[in-house]
Write a protein that binds this DNA or RNA. Sequence first.
RNA 1: GCUUCCUUAGCUCAGUCGGUUAGAGCAUCUGACUGUUAAUCAGGGGGUCCUAGGUUCAAGUCCUAGAGGGAGCGCCA
Length: 465
Amino acid sequence: MERTVIIDALKSTRLNEPINVRGWVRSRRGNKQINFIALNDGSTIKNIQIVVDMSKFSEEQLKPVTTGSCISATGILVASQGSGQAVEVQLTELEVYGTADPEQYPLQKKGLSMEYLRTIAHLRPRTNTFGAVLRIRHNMAMAIHTYFHQHGYFYFHTPLITASDCEGAGQMFQVTTKNLYNLKKDENGQIDYSDDFFGKMAALTVSGQLEGELGAMALGKIYTFGPTFRAENSNTPRHLAEFWMIEPEVAFIQKEELMALEEDFIKFCVKWALDNCMDDLEFLNQYVDKGLIERLKGVINTEFVHLTYTEGVEILQEAIKSGHKFEFPCQWGDDLASEHERFLVEEHFGRPVIMTDYPKDIKAFYMKLNEDDKTVQGTDVLFPQIGEIIGGSVREENLDKLNAEIERRHIPMKDMWWYLDTRRFGSAPHAGFGLGFERLMLFVTGMQNIRDVIPFPRTPKSAEF
RNA sequence: GCUUCCUUAGCUCAGUCGGUUAGAGCAUCUGACUGUUAAUCAGGGGGUCCUAGGUUCAAGUCCUAGAGGGAGCGCCA
């Protein structure tokens, strides 16, 4: 008989008709007369209840049906006699696909910590929490593609392997086919890459932005959405060595339009979650973060604060004057610490902040210089709890100014001639941003640790599964 | 990378000042129960106290080193 997915079975109005559902057993309980099986197939967080009349089945037949086992259950879909579910399946035929020895199966019906579940990441998608997170993760990916597609952006695939060592966004993972125990060195003791696979040093990308700009200079509006790698030894609940990043790049827009894009985009994604993932959000709201749904609704109904870096520093200095203690100082020109950002977002304004016009020395070389010659047109979105969720900027489109900045910073650009060509041939004002997908996931799910919003996290000292 | 905390049953944790045979809840197993919802009730089994050294008559407990994990910070998305 054809399988019905549980999300459809639970909504079905075809009562008293045969049905077949298949999935993994969450629990079985009962007595000599009657047994109840809670079955989940991942299509929804909700289980379907299989009712077993024990006068028609033997204990022996039910014995392999334990928590974690996989079964196919055929029966009659009926209105439930119990409370807690509208419909249930009265079992007529049982097939066990795979058993799960209860003495060994590591998932229990309750009491599992996130830290423990990380050690069994191959099984944790079967839990309610991770099922919810992973369904939401899929939905967020769809929201992102939908948003950009509807707004005329093209999905632009930037390379994961890059030979430019000055993307500047962080430490890189090297890619090589060379024998690391027997490296050829030149007369200066430097590694000779001429016989390596790419003929030069290569690494995994830390950002698709520079290539993304090439796309925007031809297609007008592009976005990237792919894996990104940082070899930094970052040990926090907000960093991964392998994460997914979304980087739109748009020709012919200026700072105000960029800020509007950032805000509109995030709100679209959050609204998508509220519109499409309510069952999962309600579960997370109940068991993970009591304020989740309220906070999500709050974001789509509030206007983000627009604040320049200089104004932000003034507010922080006022706060210090009136007695607020920070661990780090906060002078104009300093990079803001997490505590400063958190103060502005969580205490001072109580809503998301788009901070702009940073001192040029604390930002990347490609950001557009303001007329004051001191600040650049960065536009970072700061969120409660998670901090910087978006890092964006208007790009410097003037070749001379860009070259001057590259020289001032002594950035080796010999492998980046192609990037400068965008400014040499038909340069255009343009802007874009990068959004960490898992940071968006943290916000939308209310989860506390970024390692729990990606199926198989990679962090320092950890690449299991 | 820095600071700090943690590691005891399958899981979550307690374990007093260093002192008898290391405990609890849940899970699991056995039994009871005619509709359960993290079912309930009764009983049983289950331990490399992270690893390696050290101090001591005696170490889960104190000391040193190492491994793994969490949090805060830095770097960043």
